[in-house]
């Protein structure tokens, strides 16, 4: 009997437990189940430990992965850095091309508009005068390209100067801003004649001198080349009058002129290599230009 009872008891226990589990499995829903609070307490009490363990495992796993992939990440990082540097250089280059394109378009438009009057050559500016006393620049075209002395240099905005020395591959340009860069000029509206030279007291500006005290010259008047002197064709824009100053003797006055050409930012210029037709007034299309 005892032996039979001893063998049946575990089977009975398993059956009861199985029945209990089936009963629990078939409980209507987890929301109102009586063991939910117990489960909550358990989870709450274990949360710090499980959290810490999870965090630690995560970190360790991350570290191991990082260690394993350190070489790859470093190489990838180097490659990305190189790519960023290359892309940045490309952006700078593209911007440079864009600006050059704009400038060349302007020069070409001017060249096309004046093709019946002059033969023009586009020349890059390669150097400036190293001296503070002289205002010259060197262009990257020379006698090999048909450049000659006394040829006029300009931009679509206005006159820049004239060639004073020519070498096979380069040429020296005397800017209007130089003390020796004077040019015969006239006021467009009143046709008053004068001489435009570098201003002695306004750096970067020009001045029209030898104007009679009652000469009809006022601020914002446009000043053009007069054609007198034989080097500069008549009617090329020089600049705009910004100030009238009386001379100390009271008989004459001078006009301070803001040049249209931006002498500090010249990168390409046009050289008139041949005058095909003498113009009456070559200033058409430049009146709206204002120095940036």
């Amino acid at each position: 009997m005892r032996g039979l009872g001893g063998r049946l008891l575990p089977i009975l226990g398993i059956a009861v437990a199985g029945g209990l589990f089936i009963f629990l499995l078939r409980w209507p829903g987890p929301v109102d189940a009586p063991w939910i609070p117990v489960s909550g307490v358990l989870k709450q009490s274990m949360a710090p430990l499980t959290g810490a363990l999870t965090w630690t495992v995560g970190r360790v796993q991350g570290s191991i992965e990082a260690l394993l992939s350190l070489g790859r990440i470093r190489a990838e990082n180097e490659q990305l850095k190189r790519q960023v540097a290359e892309l940045q250089a490309q952006i700078v280059q593209m911007e440079e091309y864009r600006q050059e394109n704009l400038r060349l378009k302007q020069l070409l438009a001017y060249k096309a508009a004046t093709s019946g009057d002059w033969q023009l050559k586009v020349a890059p500016v390669v150097a400036r005068s190293p001296s503070n006393w002289f205002s010259t620049l060197t262009i990257g075209l020379g006698s090999d390209d048909g450049i000659g002395e006394d040829q006029v240099v300009l931009t679509p905005a206005g006159v820049v100067g004239r060639i004073i020395r020519v070498f096979p591959k380069t040429a020296e340009v005397l800017l209007l801003l130089d003390r020796e860069g004077a040019v015969g000029a006239m006021v467009q509206s009143s046709r008053v004649l004068g001489v435009v030279e570098a201003s002695s007291d306004y750096r970067g500006y020009l001045q029209m001198i030898h104007l009679a005290h009652d000469a009809p010259v006022k601020e914002n008047d446009i000043v053009l080349t007069s054609g007198l002197g034989g080097i500069f064709p008549k009617g090329l824009p020089i600049g705009r009058v910004v100030k009238i100053l009386p001379e100390p003797d009271g008989l004459m006055k001078r006009a301070i002129i803001e040049p249209y050409a931006d002498f500090d930012r010249l990168e390409e210029v046009l050289v008139i290599t041949k005058i095909l037709r003498v113009q009456e007034d070559a200033s058409s299309g430049v009146h709206h230009y204002r120095r940036p």
Partner: peptide
């Protein structure tokens, strides 16, 4: 020095002058 004065220092002008 001359090359620098004719090129780079053009950009670094102060009060319209460049160094010698």
């Amino acid at each position: 020095s001359l090359i620098l004065e004719a090129t780079v220092l053009q950009v670094f002008q102060v009060a319209g002058v460049k160094p010698d």
